[in-house]
């Protein structure tokens, strides 16, 4: 009898603890999702405000061939391929690779760059398509 009530008590206590755990966990999940949502909204609004630079691909060449951007600042490149044919924007130094079909406009976001000169090239026209991003 005694043993039984002790077990029941322990059970009750465990249930209560489980309840608290559940509630705190729920709380944590809510908080985490709020933070995530906030972060997402922030990053979207931050992106909308990102400085943007235009780059056009035409006849196997980039225009302009030198783009000057502020150093240590996130920015985006809005690339339009006017053709003819597709092009692959590539730069190992900038850590980007993106195939852009003819007639397509695509924007690429760049993490802050240290001051310097970064070469990029068009992989489908390696002899002519070349350019630099200069971070100042």
């Amino acid at each position: 009898m005694n043993t039984f009530s002790v077990t029941a008590k322990t059970k009750h206590a465990t249930n209560q603890r489980m309840d608290i755990y559940k509630r705190t966990n729920m709380h944590k999940i809510h908080l985490a999702s709020l933070l995530l949502l906030g972060g997402l909204l922030l990053s979207i609004s931050a992106q909308a405000a990102l400085p943007a630079y235009k780059l056009t691909i035409k006849d196997g060449r980039f225009e302009p061939e030198t783009i000057t951007v502020p150093a240590r600042t996130r920015f985006k490149l809005v690339i339009t391929n006017q053709g003819p044919g597709p092009e692959e924007f590539e730069s190992k130094k900038l850590r980007k690779e993106s195939v852009i079909a003819e007639g397509v406009t695509r924007s690429i976001v760049f993490a802050p760059l240290k001051p310097g000169r970064y070469r990029f090239f068009g992989e489908f026209h390696p002899d002519t398509a070349e350019g630099h991003i200069v971070a100042k």
């Binding site: 053709g83 003819p84 044919g85 597709p86 692959e88 195939v99 079909a101 003819e102 489908f124």
Partner: peptide, 13 residues
Amino acid sequence: AETVIFLYGAGLA
């Protein structure tokens, strides 16, 4: 996918 884009796009051009 890149091969398809290249062949399709560059071929049509």
